[in-house]
Amino acid sequence: MDDVAVADAAVRFTEVSVGYHGTPVLTDVNLELVPGQRLALIGPNGAGKSTLIKSILGLVPVLAGTSTVLGRTPAQARARTGYVPQTDSLDADFPVTAGQVVMMGRYRRIGWWRPTRNADRRAVHEALDRLGLADHARTHFGVLSGGQRQRVLLARAIAAEPRLLLLDEPFNGVDAVSQEAIVSVLRELSAVGTTLVLSTHDLTVAHELADAVCVLNGRQWAVGPPDETLTADTLRRAYGGHAVELRDGRTVLVEP
């Protein structure tokens, strides 16, 4: 049964509407992601990017349409889905070390109160090491830079060994060094079959990292390869006229 799920789409949303308390935030979503695919969600603030990510996690209800994640319902698939929240949604004063944060990625396996095992500690060390933070395991999370914190959160998701990884604005307030480290790990994960969904404001990153783009603003405006979706026309419609085309054929956004 697992093998069927592997061959199946990682995410399949058909004519989906999602929202809170019966009021849709996002409509007309049609997605079909194969394992290893890298999807970027593009759209202005309040477009519904975070809501879509949470609906793939089964945390925001699907109001209409059909949705499967890893061959199951979103909530059932949560055990094999990883999530990287926005760094600034966390309490930086919370007394916890980088290593302890990454260990949270193992909590689902460990359960409520079984002691941690060597395999858990090894997974934590390896995840930190992949993101260049092996020396920071005992560093207080709050004293790390924004980029380092984001890398810790990605390490936490990796430690859970997910088949589908959802990232909410992973490059917000992140320095160039951290961004490079994150992008290279995301490429490695995709190469071994982990499906990625990430929301971003950064069209350049979307162009370079993603092999599919979904343009959103209240509804899905376009989905497909970056070259076909990140066009001035689509972006202008989704953003309401604040898109400008550059000379090299790329498109850049000017926020009002």
């Binding site: 949560r78 889905t81 949604s89 949270m104 109160w113 959802l166």
Partner: peptide, 23 residues
């Protein structure tokens, strides 16, 4: 407290992450 400490710490630090992890 002993039974729930791990889950409580996760929820306190990162409510969205804890919910996503199934708590």
């Amino acid at each position: 407290l002993l039974f729930s400490a791990r889950a409580l710490i996760f929820r306190t630090f990162d409510p969205a992450g804890a919910a996503a992890a199934g708590f």
